[in-house]
């Protein structure tokens, strides 16, 4: 099983049971097809997405598992953050449908061929997709929720230490000056 992968791809050994390999968007379907037919990695167990905003790319991770559930192989595919469509895997793996639906909602990635890209967990969301790094959670929370009343007496400890030091200093100086 491993020999086929070693021969044909640049395999990254992450742990003895976890491997990774990089594919481009165009190679993805073909590579998946090759791997599922020639090796025992034939189950999609997770579809991940990481936003590398500073490098202007999303990194999708197609986590494959073998039938014995003993090894994992991750196909990593970087795509641009603005041109965000991928071919859907719904025909290859039934479970991909809902995973793609989630990523569509959370990152705004389109999956061509997936018919179910409607609301997943968010209802009527028209802001930018929330898992993108540019979505500012803190600003959103401050705009939509209040702090409990009665917490205005919170003090900045660094300021207080400075004030106390200054007060102690002037207290020392006053008696000596008098």
């Amino acid at each position: 099983m491993m020999s086929y992968l070693e021969e044909h791809y640049e395999l990254i050994h992450k742990t003895p049971r976890l491997f990774a390999l990089h594919v481009t968007r165009e190679q993805l379907l073909d590579t998946l097809h090759q791997i599922t037919t020639h090796t025992s990695f034939d189950t999609l167990s997770q579809l991940t997405c990481t936003d590398w905003i500073e490098e202007e790319r999303f990194e999708l991770g197609y986590m494959l598992t073998n039938a014995l559930r003993s090894h994992n192989l991750m196909l990593k595919c970087s795509i641009a953050r603005d041109k965000v469509t991928m071919p859907s895997l719904a025909l290859l793996f039934a479970q991909a449908e809902v995973m793609e639906r989630e990523l569509h909602e959370m990152f705004g990635i389109g999956f061509e061929g997936n018919e179910t890209l409607y609301d997943f967990a968010l209802e009527g969301w028209c802001d930018i997709p929330p898992m993108r790094r540019e979505f500012d959670t803190l600003a959103y929370v401050n705009a939509h929720y209040d702090f409990r009343e009665g917490r205005e007496d919170n003090l900045d400890v660094k300021e207080e230490i400075k004030k106390r030091k200054a007060a102690a200093k002037s207290a020392k100086e006053t008696p000596s000056g008098a």
Partner: peptide
């Protein structure tokens, strides 16, 4: 929240503040 203490109980407390917690 760090709030001002009424009466200093620890001379080593440099800021004169003690924590108060929002249990919500």
């Amino acid at each position: 929240d760090m709030i001002a203490i009424d009466k200093d109980k620890n001379p080593k407390n440099n800021s004169g503040c003690i924590p108060r917690i929002d249990y919500g």
